[in-house]
């Protein structure tokens, strides 16, 4: 089994599905001849041709809009938005068109588009190459949101996403794009959308994370075994695997959520609300959120902004020691 990074896993998933399903097309800025700014689409144009691997003009609303039209009429487009910070020009197409097509047509049709987009901080990109906008899309009914943390999940989930009959925002953690390596099966396999993974079992507290911050959380809980933390990688943010979350918190009685996006109205807030609704009698401490700051993303202070392992560890100690 080859050991790949996330970029290689994504590339392979696209290749596997394009070979299997002639309806799959890839489009975006520099995705063809250049192979993508992070090289996730490298080599696809050589194998599948310029009709299925499309170099577009620089126009995100156009890219997503065209993908919607393709999907409405039988194709399975996988547009790439070069950085998730560049998704906002296409926000109208995503929120007002893509997400609503099935509902507004009374179920007559949908647009099975998978928007791939590298997300999150960690490359010293500053304000417009670092944001993690998952909450905006979770807040939009009609979208599935996937945010894997490792190559194995990235490939299996991307294959599921392309085969899904509803649209997906597929966020790729660029901080660990190359750093997160692991065994990835060759050929076809899928990971179901909506299933979290228990990374590490424990009884002392539940720690929930996704994307690049999963690795920070893993480092933190590994440093202090007496926390006896159970670490959950959500993998799919929406639909949320609420059973996995509730099951774990019911067992541990304490819960921390790690999120690199700004704190206020982030997905951690929604998870916290769901946990207190369903686990209230079992909770032994306030639910902890360990998040980015409520500020734009700062260039020089990137490592202070992100909830990295030391900050996570500090908060988890507090959570462990909390007594009502």
């Amino acid at each position: 089994m080859p050991s790949w990074n996330i970029i290689q896993a994504v590339n392979d998933a696209l290749r596997v599905e394009m070979r299997r399903d002639p309806r799959v097309v890839v489009l975006g800025e520099d995705v063809g001849k250049f192979g993508g700014v992070f090289r996730a689409t490298l080599g696809l144009i050589e194998e599948f041709g310029a009709d299925r691997v499309i170099d577009t003009p620089l126009a995100e609303a156009g890219i997503v809009g065209a993908a919607i039209g393709m999907a409405m009429y039988g194709l399975r487009p996988v547009p790439e938005i070069q950085f998730s910070d560049f998704i906002y020009p296409a926000f109208d197409q995503i929120v007002n068109e893509l997400a609503k097509l099935r509902y507004r047509s009374g179920g007559q049709y949908s647009a099975p588009v998978v928007i791939r987009t590298p997300a999150g901080g960690g490359i010293k990109g500053g304000h417009y190459h670092s944001q993690s906008p998952e909450a905006l899309f979770i807040h939009t009914p009609g979208l599935q949101v996937i945010y894997p943390s490792n190559p194995y999940d990235a490939k299996g989930l991307l294959l599921s996403a392309i085969r899904s009959d509803d649209p997906v925002i597929f966020m790729e953690p660029k901080r660990v794009y190359r750093a997160a390596k692991g065994d990835v099966p060759e050929g076809d396999y899928t990971i179901p959308i909506g299933e979290a993974r228990v990374v590490r079992e424990g009884r002392g507290m539940t720690v929930i994370a996704w994307g690049a911050m999963l690795h920070e959380a893993e480092q933190a809980v590994g440093q202090l075994p007496e926390l006896d933390a159970e670490l959950i990688d959500l993998r799919t943010l929406w639909p949320l695997d609420i059973e996995a979350v509730v099951g774990s918190v019911s067992k541990t009685g304490r819960c921390a959520i790690v999120q690199e996006a700004p704190r206020t109205c982030g997905f951690a807030a929604e998870i916290a609300a769901l946990v207190q609704e369903r686990c209230f009698p079992r909770l032994e401490a306030p639910i902890a959120r360990i998040t980015g700051w409520d500020t734009p993303f700062p260039y020089a202070l990137e490592n202070d902004y992100l909830p990295l392992a030391p900050r996570i560890l500090h908060k988890l100690r507090e959570l462990k020691d909390y007594e009502a």
């Binding site: 010293k124 500053g126 304000h127 417009y128 700062p298 260039y299 020089a300």
Partner: peptide, 15 residues
């Protein structure tokens, strides 16, 4: 990314 920068280091090259 230094304090003496035009925006005190918060923006960087692109901003």
């Amino acid at each position: 990314g230094r304090r003496c920068g035009l925006m005190g280091g918060k923006g960087g090259s692109m901003h």
